[in-house]
């Protein structure tokens, strides 16, 4: 196996595009190295992106905030401006694993690994984030929701890698929230999860809303019906009930020892309602 740690993105793209065989990108390695050791992947080359300085930055851009692909989730958790603007995205990232895992794992790795239960993906979809992708043909932006295409599969082409996750500008009175259900409080994988991102006006009427669910389908899903239920309304009992129903109706979960179909479907609605309430309070809504 070859190990390469290029110092710039163009070098990384050239290595990815120019190397025959199985090339795997290494960010924190908390998925990749586990799979290598289990014999599930046998890379001909591992390309470590952590020596690319630009990928370690969280920066303000003209259009919002940019989180470099090598920024660890632990680093996101101590970044004040990021936490203030996107508390839901940060809480989803900080739920991944233990402190040891937080010191290594990235949201880009979480996204590219494309687990149906990945914690940051619903929050990034609700945030309307985009992945900035570099490849042999230059750069492109892709909605985070379109990047995972199925369990363990993503839409990246040969030679491409994710450079950063781009979060849009934030209007006043906006906030997001992410909640997951796990049998243990720490170190566990979501049985169901929900993310809600919303903006309210001075009267508390919801003027923008995005809702996403995790672990209830092969990829994280957006729930337009729940968004429609929120838009133009305050977060009263009727609105909340409609959000819960829409989310339960959108579920196509698996049945396994961690949760039955009925259970996951029901809990999805409950979590979505609670996430909506949390986002609403953070946005300045009055209960």
């Amino acid at each position: 196996m070859r190990y390469e740690a290029p110092q710039t993105t163009p070098e990384a793209v050239a290595l990815l595009a120019g190397t025959k065989g199985k090339v795997h990108i290494l960010a924190g390695g908390t998925d990749l190295i586990v799979r290598m050791k289990g014999g599930f992947v046998e890379p001909d080359m591992v390309l470590d992106i952590k020596r690319i300085k630009a990928m370690h930055l969280i920066r303000k851009t003209k259009s919002g905030l940019s989180i470099g692909a090598a920024v660890t989730c632990g680093e996101m958790g101590v970044h004040k401006a990021l936490k203030k603007a996107w508390p839901g995205v940060v809480e989803s990232a900080n739920l991944i694993g233990s402190d040891q895992i937080q010191g290594r794992c990235t949201i880009t790795g979480n996204l590219c690994n494309a687990s149906p239960a990945a914690d940051s993906i619903p929050a990034l979809i609700a945030a309307d984030a985009r992945a900035l992708i570099a490849g042999p043909k230059g750069e492109r932006l892709l909605d985070v929701g379109s990047l995972p295409t199925g369990p363990g599969k993503n839409a990246l082409k040969k030679g491409e890698l994710v450079v950063s996750i781009e979060l849009p500008p934030r209007d006043a009175r906006s906030a997001d929230a992410y909640l997951r259900f796990t049998p243990r409080t720490e170190m566990d994988i979501a049985v169901v999860s929900a993310a809600v991102n919303l903006t309210i006006d001075r009267q508390g009427v919801i003027t923008a809303a995005r809702v996403a669910l995790g672990a209830v389908a092969p990829t994280a899903i957006r729930v337009p019906a729940a968004e429609k239920a929120l838009l133009g309304n305050k977060l009263d009992a009727a609105t909340l009930a409609a959000v819960g129903e829409a989310c339960s109706a959108a579920c196509k979960p698996i049945d396994d020892k961690r949760g039955t179909v009925e259970y996951r479907t029901r809990v999805a609605g409950v979590l979505a309602k609670r996430a909506a309430q949390a986002a609403w309070m953070r946005a300045g809504g009055k209960p």
């Binding site: 924190g28 952590k50 040891q100 010191g103």
Partner: peptide, 20 residues
């Protein structure tokens, strides 16, 4: 668990090559 450049990590999920 070891501390790598000031950050707590699992040494079982770090490649030796990364320690350069």
């Amino acid at each position: 668990s070891v501390i790598l450049d000031g950050t707590l990590v699992c040494a079982c999920l770090v490649l030796g090559m990364e320690a350069e």
